[in-house]
Write a protein that binds this DNA or RNA. Structure first.
Length: 261
DNA sequence: GCGACAG
DNA sequence: ATCTTGTCGC
């Protein structure tokens, strides 16, 4: 699959929406809000932007967690071969609140989409979905290395995957995107809101004193407040949350094993 | 036209 | 993201 998970409108132009919406009800559990389909080829940049706008409308910025407090938190990240032709995705699942690793899966794919700020999900999303599908566990939350709603269209990698998987998702990035950098207080736990227009899209968070801030934003099915809480709860010794560190390590390890560095 | 620009 | 070793500092 190419990873966008949306069906190419077999209808010409922009046509109409889907058929009937599923009946409203309390937080769907096993249901996926959108069918995760396989694509024959990656979307064009225009198609990607179109898909992103459709997904943006489905982002839920409220807490809709399967269990709270969450018991299983996953981290997802990717690594690339040195020649940049292959991408390795890894998802690590940690138990809470001890953060003990309970599951991890990796996947490899050829890189099929360019790095375009704002369209990151189309580059790393596919391989992360591949890894996710192999999990034996069902995480309550997934943290992605990238942005959620701190995004020009309000739909970064974390929102995109959160919607496709219908799983609460959080985006944690090292730098802002489309907004000026802001500086929280110097103490761990200090935060500064990041605005996009009139909305608070996310916030800069100091996870460790004396270390650069990280940018946290809701991806899907979670509030900004809860997202920040989860990030601080999983990132104390290091700047980045532990699930993300674990995923990164495994992605790099997968690359080494595959012997295509 | 120039700069900015998640990983 | 990746190319790259050691080094200064807590």
């Amino acid at each position: 699959m190419t990873g966008n998970g949306l069906e190419q409108p077999s209808s010409p132009g922009e046509g109409g929406r889907e058929g009937a919406e599923p009946p409203p009800g309390p937080t769907p559990r096993e249901d996926t809000a959108l069918p995760v389909r396989t694509f024959a080829s990656p979307p064009s940049l225009d198609a990607a932007r179109r898909i992103q706008r459709v997904l943006a409308a489905r982002v839920i910025r409220e807490d809709r967690l399967p269990r709270s407090p969450p018991q299983l938190i996953a981290g997802a990240d990717a690594a690339y071969s040195r020649d940049g032709t292959q991408v390795y995705g890894a998802v690590a699942v940690l138990h809470c609140p001890d953060l003990c690793p309970v599951d991890v899966q990796c996947a490899e794919r050829p890189v099929e989409f360019p790095y375009v700020p704002g369209l990151f999900a189309f580059r790393e999303g596919p391989v992360l979905l591949d890894a996710w599908k192999q999990l034996a566990t069902r995480p309550d939350i997934v943290i992605l290395h990238g942005h959620g709603t701190i995004h020009p269209e309000g739909c970064g990698l974390a929102s995109h995957l959160g919607i496709l998987l219908d799983v609460p998702a959080i985006g944690v990035a090292e730098r802002p995107l489309g907004t000026v950098a802001v500086t929280p207080g110097s103490a761990r736990g200090d935060t500064t809101p990041v605005h996009i227009g009139d909305r608070v899209a996310g916030c800069a968070v100091r996870t460790r004193a004396g270390v650069r801030e990280v940018y946290v934003s809701p991806g899907h099915r979670i509030s900004l407040e809860t997202a920040v809480h989860i990030v601080l709860a999983t990132a104390s010794r290091y700047r980045m949350p532990e699930p993300l560190r674990a995923a990164h390590r495994h992605a790099v390890e997968c690359r080494a094993k595959t012997r295509k560095e």
